[in-house]
């Protein structure tokens, strides 16, 4: 596997242009499987003004350690570069982010220099299509401090024999007690886009979302996950694994319910289960589990 170290973070604007072009018949030469290469950014310093903006939109307290989901956000341009590469088997736009897991071995200090490396796993069958996982490794020097796994689904041509995967340990939707109601404003997608760089048109405006088959703009899955983690920020250990499955998209503006329950104290059972669902209908948007490592 080849490793390509980039000199600077790619601009997500031009990558979206490339992603849009990737949807046209002009695109050709797609590979059969995910290209096995790793993209890497080194010596990444966190800009505290940008971090503060991110914290305001996701409601994290700005601590001396980074929100655990933030390094994954810093790696977003690398994800886009992988997805928009000419030999990538699928067009980037139209992929559905179905699961995200972050394993944090230790908290990352705001002034640590990070190395981010991103690669995609080979295509695997899925009941509703084909899937692959983008793996982001976050290191400080030679120490691996965090691994983020984002699983994407390309709908169509699914293998019915593949059982739909249930996230490990998640309770059935609706079982968890609701603890809060969050009001998500109509411009949330644009606000999160400006702090994360993820300007996918499905999140920006109703009109641009309609072009991709959504009735209205939808919230970023990673915003929803970040908001959940912000709510649990002081209730988790330093080393942990947090898994979420994204269910139905959150159409903006929205009022959603946040549900959470603490699990028992048994070593292999402890942690938190959480969920985001529609306040009125109970439609599941996100199911998550947080476990100590």
């Amino acid at each position: 596997m080849s490793i390509e170290t980039l000199q600077s973070s790619p601009s997500s604007g031009s990558l979206y242009l490339k992603a849009a072009l990737g949807m046209t018949p002009l695109a050709r030469g797609r590979g059969k499987d995910v290209p096995q290469r790793t993209l890497q950014l080194e010596n990444i310093a966190v800009d505290s003004a940008k971090l503060a903006d991110y914290c305001r939109v996701t409601e994290f307290t700005m601590r001396d350690t980074l929100p655990p989901i933030y390094p994954n956000t810093l790696a977003f341009p690398l994800h886009m570069k992988v997805l928009t590469a000419g030999d990538f088997p699928f067009p980037a736009i139209g992929l559905v982010h179905v699961e995200n897991t972050i394993t944090q071995h230790r908290p990352v200090k705001t002034d640590e220099r990070l190395t981010l490396s991103v690669r995609a796993t080979p295509i695997a069958p899925h009941a509703k299509g084909r899937q692959f996982t983008m793996i982001t490794e976050v290191s400080v020097g030679d120490e691996l401090v965090q691994v983020a796994e984002s699983t994407y689904l390309k709908r169509g041509g699914g293998d019915k024999n593949t059982a739909a995967q249930r996230p490990e340990g998640a309770g059935a939707p609706g079982e968890l007690p609701q603890i809060a109601e969050w009001k998500l404003p109509g411009d949330l997608g644009r606000r999160y886009a400006s702090v994360s760089g993820d300007r996918n048109p499905i999140h920006m405006y109703d009109l641009t979302a309609k072009a991709f088959g959504f009735p209205r703009a939808i919230a970023h899955g990673m915003w929803t996950k970040a908001r959940c983690l912000a709510a649990l920020d002081n209730r988790r250990p330093d080393a942990f694994k947090v898994h979420v499955a994204f269910r139905r998209p959150v159409l903006l503006p929205a009022k959603v319910a946040f549900a959470v329950a603490e699990r028992g104290d048994d070593a292999d059972q402890s942690g938190l289960d959480f969920a985001v669902r529609d306040v009125k209908k109970g439609t599941p948007h996100l199911d998550g589990t947080l476990r100590p490592l």
Binding site: A49, A52, D53, C55, M62, R63, D64, N234
Partner: peptide, 14 residues
């Protein structure tokens, strides 16, 4: 500059 009172106080308390 971009830290709030709550951010800083929480950092000191933690």
């Amino acid at each position: 500059s971009h830290a709030s009172n709550q951010d800083m106080f929480t950092a000191a308390v933690d």
